[in-house]
Design a protein around this nucleic acid. Structure first.
Lengths: 469, 469
DNA sequence: GGGTATTTGTCCGTATGTATG
DNA sequence: TCATACATACGGACAAATACC
């Protein structure tokens, strides 16, 4: 008889304990293939539990393939080589997959703080979605997304971003990459795309992958240089005017006008406005989207809930000018919307019931606090650094004075557990005049920020001194 | 087993619904005296509710005298003659008028029966996913999909479809359209695609939209004609060998070998195997996927959970041959996975815990019943029709003899509330020798099937007679 | 070798505790 | 507090396999 200590007092169910015990015995080879398990009666009597408790444990083992049942004869340990192999492979691959080991101090510009995700609200809404009288949502939905959600987004974009459109112009899709794919089907790929340099590389990769010619357009403190744009043969300008990625530059009104004017000059010119983190602005008045000033149907506005809610949600949207919408409807409306309708329904309620706004405010306060704390900590550098773009977004830009060997500096930081990205990696062509470091703070707590900055300071001093020697 | 659609979403308690349903069945004589009710366990599992819920319903029936309990044996329908006289409450269920535009008798080949979706299980898994304190799933995930889900799919595909691959070859995406988009990025669009004629038009639209040259290849009773394929300059063959859409043809083994051989002959030939509804096969042994016999890395296997679980889920997968996987990893792995990670986590658990298999079995039984009922009802046509493709899938093909003006027939049907699609609409080029009608039955109840068929019969007689006059 | 008692998997109804709203 | 639903655990009934006389 197997020796097993069961604990009725524990919250873990008895059958679960039995199941796990036997499973382990099988896994580690104590119980070999073909061995007969004790009969449910004997075992039940021995353990002084009900037979059905044993039954439950046995049937779980059965359904997972650890044992086989021969009716009226007994339960026998199955050939578990396959199962074992699978879990072995699983472990191995997990090791390799988990190779993107997270360092203790990741100042990554991507990523958001999920500690404050409204799990309970989300769960409640989920439940409602599944309970409500709408099994209809389990059928196929609208090609560009559910009307309710598009309408909710329209209202939100209108009120908080000044975007002017009607809900039919909004196309939902699972992520910006997919939306760009769709857009490429609308526009065709026979264009040259102009991107701010440096820029959001993910978008750059998509464009080049899709076969676009991509040109990096220089930036100054007002954003993309329109004169350079006008001289080039670029027809599509991809910009992030609200908060340029990664520099944090905000495009002022006259530059915006110039950009819109540029687009209006020729028929096949368009502007893709990626409003990727417009939600988080801490000082000064919010800057409306470019799209709101576009009178000529030239701006394709794109946004996402990845930063504001969670990357896992994977809901993005784009607002098409009517001219392009017509093409979409004619040529592409047979594509089904890629966003799960359950998520759409939840998100729709989330916005409509005001949770989104509350959540945004909460997160804005939270991030503002982190931002301020980071700025506070950075003061230990005194005059040795220049900080840029700290009034918005989830990262700041830092230029360390008197630093030359950036590669070694970055590597040393990495070895100390600090991961920082450099702005030069975001350049399509050329290099920055001054190397800058991108300090994302969204996922970090105050302790991490403080300790991380101290490590950076420490190394910075070493590297700087070494240079001066 | 009793067929009963329960509505977790209605405010009416589940046990009340069960109670009323059985009471009605007893009253109207469907359940006769002495009939044994399903055991609480079986019934609970079938309906995906707790046994106690069934118990509540049963004990209410018991206390009102509709059934008798024989301890340790079961519940049996009582002699209810007296009761019927007393409580003859002819209560009609609330007639919530249909709000949708849909016709009463939609024999649509798309769509699935959502009445038996395991809402409770799904909700429970959702809850776990959101509770499990693994806020990790709210961060950005693997480009081709979460490992756990891909591994679960791998095991499922291996066991039930004979697909041979490892989980890294599986790419998840939100829907077949998106996956074809991705695939086009891997292969390039400089190919000619050969499709079965008639075929799945959605795929056809995607291919043409993406710029592929598409050629319709004739079919015979064994599927796509390989001789015609070989003569053409087609390089990519899109096929549905398990259950051709829409004809229902199953590709036999020698035709499969010929197809694989065709692909192996030249380097840039590939086969896209769309296994869109392989889950539902009612007679004969299941047919393994083509992919399992492919020794040369030529088959791209595609599948989806839209039919087996719900279209709203929007999770599809494709299995890439290693050669193409390398290209994907090199060129496209920067694309984020388009499937919500929450859905991925839920689905992963759903499969791993065996719910998927149970659900499939339940749905197969359900659809088989509907299929049989439809076939039964079609007997009123006697020799006037030929039915094809009724051993699998969610639709059957019907050829009405002696019918000529199909347009007017279809229109008349529509006016009577019956919507049927014709096979000629699925042709890329040319027309069928004999027009056939596609009768999808997934979403219809028995009453709808019966009444719909009667309307069709009625109109058929009219149209036929008119012709003979 | 054939009948019989025992063992065994399987199925059954029942009872109690708990989470949720 | 109460209704609802689910999780866990209990012991009896049955038929097939098995052991034993």
């Amino acid at each position: 008889m197997l020796t097993i200590g069961i604990d009725t007092k524990k919250k873990e169910p008895i059958y679960e304990q039995i199941y796990k015990y036997i499973r382990n015995e099988i896994k580690n080879g104590t119980l070999t293939r073909g061995t007969r398990l004790p009969s449910s009666r004997k075992f039940a009597e021995y353990l002084d539990v009900s037979r059905n408790t044993i039954d439950l444990a046995y049937s779980q083992l059965l359904s997972e393939g650890y044992v086989e049942s021969k009716p009226k004869k007994g339960y026998f340990v199955a050939d578990v080589d396959e199962i074992l192999e699978i879990s072995d492979v699983l472990q191995e691959e997990e090791e390799t997959a988990g190779k993107k080991e997270t360092l203790p101090y990741e100042f990554a510009p991507s990523g958001v703080d999920m500690g404050h995700f409204p799990y309970n609200t989300w769960r409640k809404l989920m439940k409602n979605v599944l309970m409500d009288d709408n099994s209809e949502i389990f059928q196929k939905g609208d090609s560009s997304g559910d009307y309710e959600l598009r309408e909710a987004i329209r209202i939100y974009l209108h009120q908080s971003r000044g975007v002017i459109c009607n809900s039919s112009q909004i196309i939902l899709g699972s992520g910006m990459e997919y939306l760009l794919l769709l857009l490429s089907q609308i526009l065709g790929t026979d264009y040259t795309v102009g991107m701010e340099n440096p820029t959001y590389l993910q978008a750059y990769r998509v464009f080049t992958q899709l076969g676009y010619k991509v040109l990096g357009i220089s930036m100054n403190e007002m954003g993309m240089r329109i004169d350079e744009l006008a001289k080039s043969d670029v027809q599509i300008a991809y910009v992030t005017p609200s908060h340029q990625y990664p520099t944090g530059t905000v495009m002022p009104i006259n530059r915006r006008s110039a950009l819109l004017k540029w687009a209006a000059e020729k028929e096949h010119r368009f502007i893709i406005e990626d409003d990727y983190d417009s939600e988080f602005r801490y000082y000064g008045k919010p800057i409306p989207a470019l799209q709101g000033n576009d009178k000529n149907g030239k701006v394709i506005y794109m946004g996402t809930f990845s930063k504001a809610i969670a990357p896992a949600i994977r809901v993005g949207y784009m607002v098409l000018p009517k001219q392009l919408l017509a093409i979409y409807q004619e040529k592409l409306s047979f594509y089904s919307c890629t966003v799960s309708r359950i998520d759409q329904a939840i998100l729709s309620e989330f916005i409509r019931e005001g949770h989104f706004e509350r959540h945004l405010n909460r997160m804005r306060t939270l991030y503002k606090g982190k931002n301020q704390y980071l700025m506070q900590q950075l003061k230990i550098f005194g005059e040795d650094i220049i900080v840029k773009g700290s009034s918005a977004g989830l990262h700041v830009l830092v230029e360390f004075k008197g630093l030359e060997d950036h590669d070694r500096f970055e590597k040393s930081l990495y070895e100390k557990g600090v991961k920082i990205q450099r702005i030069s990696h975001y350049y399509i062509t050329g290099k920055p005049e001054k190397e800058c470091y991108i300090l994302g703070f969204a996922r970090l707590g105050e302790t991490q920020i403080r300790e991380g900055i101290l490590i950076i300071k420490d190394l910075y001093d070493k590297f700087r001194i070494r240079k001066e020697e």
